[in-house]
Every structure is written in structure tokens, then in C-alpha cells.
Amino acid sequence: FGAALPTAEETTYDIAGSSRLPPLRVLGQIHKTFIVCEGPDGLYLVDQHTAHERVLLERFQKARASQGVPSQRLLAPLTLELTPQQMALVEQQQEALLRLGFEVEPFGGLMVLLRALPTLLKQHPDPAAALAEILDGAIADRSGLSWEERLVMYAACRGAVKAGDGLTHDEMRDLMRQLEETDLSRTCAHGRPTVVRLSHAQLEREFGRR
């Protein structure tokens, strides 16, 4: 039909507008990475990783501001060998890690015991690897945030579902409801977009209806 493709400015959800999303109806999943939804003003493509990261970030933040992040003790402690940089961070920020639900105990040299982790991360398949990745992310981060804020940001990132994770319809619907309830639903902890919207007008142009 010769209709021009919409520009990035047209398709990206307007970040300057309302920070909350409208109610969305889940239609399906693409490449086990993007959730396709129908909204009152068009078609929405949702990045499942960045969306879940935003949900976890706000849950961590709200828990820190109230009673603290709930923690779950492991049935048996996990032994983990850290790098010198990771070990230095654990020793310097042990109280911050405890406030975030991580109970990490030095075990000689560069070895530590992971005895508990935040309940928000209890579904992670490898808690020890998650802790190492969170420490690495905080060390490499150059955002200027405090160490505790960096640890929160990377805990949310590492705890979120990943691209390539297949989700059931109920899981996708639950994630959308949780995302709709967040205060800043359109970006993840790192500022990446969670959604891209194609308006009804853009879809009509693509099909030659305008």
C-alpha cells in the first residue's frame, strides 16, 4: 500500500505523559521475549524482562521503606567463591545486604556462605550465581547511586524473568496486572522502555485505511 513505517517517536509510548499504563488485555507472546497486549488506544508490545524488573524494583523499594525486605533462609547454606572485588563489597556492605534480605557470611579467604536471600528472588534457579551477578553489576555500575541503591537495582534485574523464558497466559496476565500497579511502569531500573505502543491510527495507516 506504500504507507510509511511509523517512526520511533510515533511507536514508543510517550514517556512524558502519564507514568502509569492503561489496563491491557494479553493476546500472546512473541519469541518468548515480548508480550502482545491490546489497550484502549492501540497495540502494546511489552518486554517481559524490563517489565518484571520494574515490578521487582518497586517492591524492593517499598519493602525497604517500610518493614524491610523479607528474607528466606535456605535449607542448607550455599558455598560461593568470590572475586577480590566482590569480597571487598560484601565486607563493606554487609549491613546493606542484610537489609535487602541477603545473609552472607565470610567463610575464609574469598569463600562465603549464602544463608538467606530475599523472598522476591526465591524462584531464582541459582541463588549463588544471582548474588555474584548482583555484586558484579553493582561494582561495574557508574550511575552515581549509593551502593545499596545499586544492589537493589541489580537484584531486581537478576531476579526478573529473562528473554527466552516461556510464560503461560496466566503468568503473562499476572505480570501485566503487576506492571499496571507500578508507579513508573514505562521504564525498567536502567531506564530502558518496558512497552512500545502502536496506536489505532498507525495500524490503520499500515493497512491502507488512512
Rank of each mutant, 00 (worst) to 15 (best):
F1M: 07
G2T: 06
A3C: 05
A4I: 01
P6D: 06
P6N: 10
T7F: 05
A8T: 09
E9C: 01
E10N: 03
T11W: 06
Y13H: 15
D14T: 08
I15M: 10
A16T: 14
A16F: 06
A16Y: 07
G17N: 07
G17E: 05
S18F: 01
R25E: 13
L27M: 12
G28C: 07
Q29E: 15
K32V: 00
T33P: 02
V36P: 09
C37Q: 10
C37V: 08
G39E: 06
P40D: 08
L45W: 08
V46I: 15
D47A: 01
Q48W: 13
H52L: 08
H52I: 09
L56E: 03
L57H: 09
L57Q: 13
R59K: 15
F60H: 13
Q61P: 00
K62Y: 02
A63R: 14
A63T: 12
R64M: 11
G68Q: 10
V69T: 14
V69F: 12
V69W: 13
S71K: 13
Q72P: 03
Q72S: 13
L75G: 15
L80I: 14
L80V: 15
L82G: 07
T83E: 12
P84F: 09
M87W: 00
A88I: 00
L89A: 11
L89M: 15
E91S: 14
E95L: 10
A96T: 11
A96G: 13
L97W: 10
L98K: 14
R99S: 12
R99F: 02
L100P: 07
G101W: 06
G101L: 03
F102G: 05
E103Q: 14
E103S: 13
E105D: 01
P106S: 05
L110S: 12
M111I: 01
M111F: 09
M111T: 13
L113T: 10
L114R: 04
R115G: 04
A116Y: 09
A116F: 08
P118E: 02
T119V: 14
L120K: 04
L121Q: 02
Q123G: 02
P125M: 02
D126T: 11
P127L: 00
A130K: 06
L131P: 06
E133P: 00
E133H: 14
I134A: 01
I134G: 01
D136K: 14
I139P: 08
A140D: 11
S143P: 12
S143W: 14
S143Y: 14
S143D: 15
G144P: 04
S146Y: 02
E149P: 01
R150K: 15
L151E: 04
L151I: 05
V152M: 12
V152K: 05
M153D: 02
Y154I: 02
Y154E: 04
Y154L: 07
G159P: 11
A160Q: 05
V161Q: 03
A163Q: 10
G164Q: 09
G164M: 05
D165W: 03
G166R: 08
T168D: 05
E171S: 10
E171Q: 15
M172S: 06
M172G: 13
M172K: 07
R173P: 00
M176Y: 10
M176A: 07
R177C: 00
R177W: 01
R177G: 00
R186Q: 15
R186W: 03
C188V: 09
A189S: 15
G191F: 05
R192V: 02
V195T: 15
V196Q: 07
S199Y: 07
L203N: 02
R205G: 00
R205M: 03
E206K: 04
F207A: 08
G208Y: 09
G208S: 05
R210V: 09
